[in-house]
């Protein structure tokens, strides 16, 4: 006669196990428990009472923990990719906070009588809400990324030849910067291609692209995807190599050309805040894009000079 507590315990463990091993594991567990009871009975010279049997089960641990020992332990984010994941997540949350803060500021500026104590919880909620979506998407993407890396055996197939040259002064790329770059580029690519909602928040904030954008969209997307690929490569291997420097510099040219073409249009982007009747329109004029073009041009020159220094360091190294 099997003590009913042993049966109850084996049944509880069984309920946490997958169907294909359930009966087998539970039978073996029950057999082990009966043997342990027999051993203790022999030592005591009498049958175990219910309290002693329950004490034995306490020692074995919660049925869920016992069952967990028999289950594989898959992880959504692999250990090797976790540092990247954490940095991207930090970048994502920071970006979401900045974007939501900007939108709240715009809305507050537009409202006739803004109430700070009403806006603050709204802002915190929108940051939390959007961050949770971001967290879920990023986790899903990383899971798929890790699976594809595992299938392609990428980390095992590395070659020592791919190791970077060591420049005179250590030229590492900030992973936080690359993480923010990746997040921003994914978001902008999705936005210009209208794969995510164009309208944000309540009252809504819409960015309306003029009809000319359709003519340049494939080129803009191509530049964004190339930039994204480069940003990902900087994130995964956070040091400069010659190809990375050349690619970064080469991307300035098409970006400048696109900005130049956009600056020739009238009102390429219109910002609309609020509902249709009471909406406020703010059109970004071609002058704004000329200023952006000049700003980017200056940045490109400064960046080229700096990267030139990195290239010279490679030559000396």
């Amino acid at each position: 006669m099997i003590n009913p507590w042993l049966n109850r315990y084996a049944y509880a463990v069984k309920s946490h196990l997958p169907a294909q091993v359930r009966n087998d594991v539970a039978d073996e567990l029950l057999s082990d428990l009966i043997d342990e009871c027999d051993y203790r009975s022999e030592t005591l010279g009498r049958e175990l009472n219910d309290d002693e049997v329950k004490q034995l089960l306490q020692e074995r641990g919660h049925p869920l923990l016992v069952a967990a020992n028999f289950l594989p332990r898959p992880s959504l984010i692999s250990e090797s990719l976790f540092p990247l994941y954490r940095q991207l997540l930090q970048g994502l949350v920071m970006l979401i906070a900045v974007v939501q803060l900007s939108f709240s500021a715009i809305r507050a500026a537009q409202a006739p009588d803004p109430n700070f104590w009403q806006l603050l919880p709204q802002l915190l909620w929108s940051i939390l809400n959007t961050s949770l979506y971001g967290f879920a998407w990023l986790t899903l993407l990383f899971y798929l990324f890790a699976e594809s890396i595992k299938k392609a055996n990428l980390l095992q197939r590395w070659q020592a030849d791919s190791l970077p040259l060591v420049p005179e002064r250590g030229k590492y790329i900030s992973r936080t910067g690359s993480a923010i770059e990746v997040v921003v580029l994914i978001y902008v690519t999705a936005w210009v291609n209208k794969t995510i909602p164009q309208s944000l928040g309540e009252p809504s904030i819409d960015l309306i692209f003029s009809s000319e954008w359709a003519t340049l969209l494939p080129w803009i997307t191509a530049v964004l995807i190339a930039s994204l690929a480069l940003a990902l490569s900087k994130l995964i291997t956070p040091y400069w190599t010659r190809p990375k420097v050349y690619a970064e510099l080469a991307l300035h040219l098409p970006t400048l050309m696109l900005l130049f073409l956009i600056s020739q249009w009238d009102n390429p982007i219109t910002l609309i805040i609020g509902a249709e009747e009471n909406a406020n329109h703010w059109a970004a004029s071609s002058n704004s894009f000329r200023i952006a073009l000049i700003g980017y041009g200056v940045y490109a020159i400064v960046d080229t000079v700096r990267k030139w220094g990195v290239l010279k360091a490679f030559t000396r190294g």
């Binding site: 091993v21 594991v25 073996e28 567990l29 074995r60 016992v66 020992n69 028999f70």
Partner: peptide, 10 residues
């Protein structure tokens, strides 16, 4: 302990 041994056997 049994929590280590049985999963290891499997």
């Amino acid at each position: 302990d049994e929590g280590t041994l049985y999963p290891l056997l499997r």
